Amino acid sequence: MPQAVWNGEVIAQSDDTVVVEGNHYFPADSIRREFFSDSATTSVCGWKGTARYYSVTVNGQTNPDCAWSYPDPKPAASQIKGRIAFWKGVKVS
């Protein structure tokens, strides 16, 4: 089952991920919300839409903007609506 791990803690786990461009998108209900906080950061992808970011804090250390989602993706990326992906040192295996 795919897991997202950062700073020694499993922050998301699900056997229902969607892989897009090499990134596992986890269902929003599979993340451990106590580690996540909203970020003001956004970015725009031409075919997916506008991404919003989250920071993760585990054991007193924060990894800013290491998770993202597309709350209202464009039609071509509809399969990732309600899902969260990771980067910046978060290990997905």
Rank of each mutant, 00 (worst) to 15 (best):
M1P: 07
P2W: 07
P2K: 15
P2M: 13
Q3E: 14
W6A: 02
N7L: 13
N7Q: 09
G8D: 10
E9W: 04
V10T: 15
I11L: 06
I11T: 09
Q13I: 12
S14R: 05
S14Y: 05
S14M: 08
D15I: 12
V18S: 05
V18P: 00
V19N: 10
V20P: 00
H24V: 08
H24Y: 14
Y25P: 00
Y25S: 06
P27H: 02
P27T: 07
S30A: 13
I31M: 03
I31K: 06
R32L: 13
R33I: 13
F35E: 04
F35Y: 15
F36D: 02
S37Y: 09
S37K: 15
D38M: 10
S39K: 07
S43T: 14
V44G: 04
V44L: 14
C45P: 03
G46V: 10
G46N: 10
G46D: 09
K48I: 08
G49C: 01
R52H: 12
D65I: 08
C66S: 11
C66D: 05
W68N: 00
Y70M: 05
P73I: 13
P73V: 12
P73T: 11
K74R: 14
P75E: 11
A76E: 15
A77S: 11
Q79G: 09
I80T: 05
G82W: 01
G82N: 01
R83L: 01
A85D: 01
F86N: 00
F86M: 02
W87Q: 03
K88E: 09
K88M: 04
